[in-house]
Amino acid sequence: EALLLQRRRVTVRKADAGGLGISIKGGRENKMPILISKIFKGLAADQTEALFVGDAILSVNGEDLSSATHDEAVQVLKKTGKEVVLEVKYMKD
């Protein structure tokens, strides 16, 4: 459990079709971090076996998301290339 509370760096390699394969919720306007709300089976994020629903995305390719709005986070995630480095931390409810 202590492991979950540490920052983790996960590299996601996207397939030619399909994006990261995650849905996010939260954002500055909700006074919440950007959280992974869904991981789609078989897509890139799922294949890492290292990302979990409830993980907060702290940064994407080094771009800090700690004070991002939901829309800003969506845009940052959309413009990523084939390889995406996510810094995440599991957030307890």
Rank of each mutant, 00 (worst) to 15 (best):
A2H: 15
A2C: 12
A2I: 15
L3G: 11
L4E: 11
R7M: 13
R7V: 13
R8G: 01
R9A: 09
R9F: 14
R9M: 14
V10G: 03
V10H: 00
T11Q: 06
T11G: 04
T11S: 09
V12H: 00
R13I: 15
R13S: 12
R13A: 08
K14I: 12
K14A: 09
K14R: 10
K14D: 10
K14M: 05
A15Y: 14
A15E: 12
D16R: 11
D16L: 11
D16P: 14
A17E: 13
G18D: 13
L20I: 13
L20G: 02
G21E: 04
G21P: 06
G21T: 00
G21C: 04
G21N: 02
G21S: 03
I22K: 00
S23D: 14
S23T: 14
S23Y: 07
I24H: 01
I24R: 02
I24W: 03
I24K: 04
I24P: 01
I24T: 07
K25D: 12
K25N: 09
G26R: 00
G26W: 01
G27I: 00
G27H: 02
G27A: 04
M32I: 05
M32V: 12
M32K: 15
I34E: 03
I34V: 08
I34C: 05
I34A: 00
L35G: 00
L35F: 10
I36G: 04
I36L: 02
S37D: 12
S37P: 00
S37Y: 10
K38F: 07
K38H: 13
I39G: 04
I39P: 01
I39H: 03
F40T: 15
F40C: 14
F40A: 12
G42S: 08
A45I: 07
A45V: 10
A45L: 05
D46I: 02
D46H: 09
D46S: 10
Q47Y: 07
T48D: 05
T48C: 15
E49G: 12
A50Y: 05
A50C: 11
A50Q: 15
L51V: 06
F52E: 11
V53M: 05
V53H: 04
D55L: 01
A56T: 07
A56I: 09
A56M: 09
I57Y: 02
I57H: 00
L58M: 12
S59G: 09
S59D: 05
V60W: 02
N61W: 03
G62Q: 06
G62F: 03
E63N: 13
D64M: 05
L65M: 11
S66N: 09
S67P: 04
S67H: 13
A68V: 13
A68K: 09
T69G: 06
H70V: 12
H70T: 11
D71E: 15
D71G: 10
E72T: 08
E72H: 11
E72N: 05
E72D: 08
V76G: 08
L77V: 03
L77F: 06
T80A: 13
T80N: 10
E83D: 15
E87V: 09
E87H: 06
V88I: 05
K89G: 09
K89Q: 11
Y90Q: 14
Y90K: 09
Y90S: 13
Y90R: 10
M91D: 10
K92W: 11
K92C: 12
